[in-house]
Every structure is written in structure tokens, then in C-alpha cells.
Simulated scan of single mutants.
Amino acid sequence: MSIQFDAIAYARELEAAGVPKDQAEVHARTLAHVVSNCVVLPGDLHEARSEIVYKLAETKAKLRSEISETAARLGSEISKTAARLGSEISESESRLRGEIVQSEARLRTKIAESEARLRTEIAESEARLRTKIDALKDAAGYLKWMNALTLALLIGLIVKSSFV
């Protein structure tokens, strides 16, 4: 839809009103240019609006499609990553369990070796103590015998000196 503007009729009206012919023609051309290039008609606005609405709907559909594709791709990547990480976790758990079992075995071996060494040391200490106790018993018996002999000699000396 276009605006109907008659520049020649407008120039004649300006001349009739007393505007010089040259000025009236310049006014008419300028106004014709403004009307044809700068004025927007309601039909033009409706057409532009329809085109904008169409392009927005088209863009919206395209964006939804891209979002769906991206969501699907990311979902797939997340699933793959989760599976890979789950596998890595399982492998780590297995490896760590193996290390724990090995550590327990080494510790049990060390404990058993320490127990055996301590039992040997205890047995050796007990044997040394028994030897010392036996030696002390022998010494105690010897001392009793010596004390008895000393006592007998003293008694004998006392008795001898009483008769002399």
C-alpha cells in the first residue's frame, strides 16, 4: 500500500498561495521524497510485524531444536562419563582392597614374627632366671651349711674355753 501524493498539484497550490514557482517545486519534491521514503503506513507495519512474528517463531523452533540436540548430546556425554567414572571407581576399589589384603597379610606376618621373637626372649629370660634362682637356692643352701658349721665351731670354741 502506498500514499497517494500529487507533487504537481501541491506545487500549484503553493504557487496559488503566493509562493514563487521555484520554491513551490522544491517544496513539492522534498515533501514527495519524505512521503514516499519516510512515512510508514499501517499496512506496511502489519506486514513488517507479520514478518517479525514469523522470523521469531522460526528462530524459536530452531533454538528449541538446538536445545534438544544439545540436551541429548550432553545427556549422552554425562552417561558415558558416569559409566567411565563408575568403572574407574570399581577398579580403584578392587586395587585398594587388594592392597588392604596384602597389608593385612604383611602385618599378620610381622605380628607372628614379633610374637615368636618375644616368646623366645621370654623363654630365654625365664631360663636365665631359673638358673639364677637355682644358683641362689644352691647359695642359700651353702650359706645354711656354712652358718651351721660356723655356729658349731663357735659352740665348740665356747665349750672348749669353758673347760680350759
Results as ranks from 00 to 15, higher is better:
74 L>I: 13
144 K>A: 05
150 T>W: 01
56 L>D: 02
34 V>M: 10
138 D>S: 06
32 A>T: 11
125 S>N: 10
92 S>H: 14
29 R>A: 06
157 L>A: 04
91 E>C: 03
62 K>E: 00
34 V>S: 05
42 P>W: 03
153 L>V: 01
128 R>V: 13
87 S>V: 00
70 T>Q: 02
141 G>M: 03
149 L>A: 08
94 S>W: 11
94 S>F: 04
82 A>K: 14
104 E>A: 05
158 I>E: 08
110 K>V: 08
30 T>P: 10
14 L>V: 04
99 E>F: 11
152 A>E: 15
156 G>N: 08
81 T>Y: 01
84 R>S: 12
146 M>Q: 14
161 S>N: 09
31 L>K: 00
13 E>T: 03
160 K>Q: 06
138 D>M: 05
9 A>V: 02
89 I>S: 11
164 V>N: 00
150 T>A: 09
89 I>D: 08
13 E>F: 06
160 K>I: 11
88 E>I: 00
139 A>L: 12
19 V>C: 07
162 S>A: 13
13 E>Q: 11
152 A>M: 05
113 E>C: 02
132 K>Y: 07
37 N>V: 07
85 L>I: 02
155 I>R: 14
117 R>Y: 12
96 L>P: 03
57 A>H: 08
100 I>G: 01
117 R>H: 09
159 V>W: 09
15 E>Y: 00
151 L>I: 00
49 R>G: 13
67 I>T: 09
122 I>K: 11
24 A>W: 01
95 R>F: 12
131 T>G: 11
36 S>Y: 09
29 R>P: 10
102 Q>H: 13
69 E>C: 09
78 I>F: 00
110 K>H: 09
36 S>Q: 14
77 E>V: 05
103 S>I: 11
71 A>N: 04
116 A>N: 08
160 K>P: 05
79 S>K: 10
19 V>W: 03
122 I>M: 13
124 E>L: 12
7 A>Y: 06
13 E>H: 03
28 A>M: 04
128 R>F: 09
154 L>T: 08
158 I>M: 07
156 G>K: 00
109 T>V: 05
11 A>H: 01
21 K>W: 06
32 A>Q: 12
17 A>S: 13
80 K>D: 15
108 R>S: 13
10 Y>S: 01
72 A>T: 14
72 A>I: 14
8 I>H: 03
31 L>C: 04
158 I>D: 07
156 G>I: 01
24 A>I: 04
120 T>W: 05
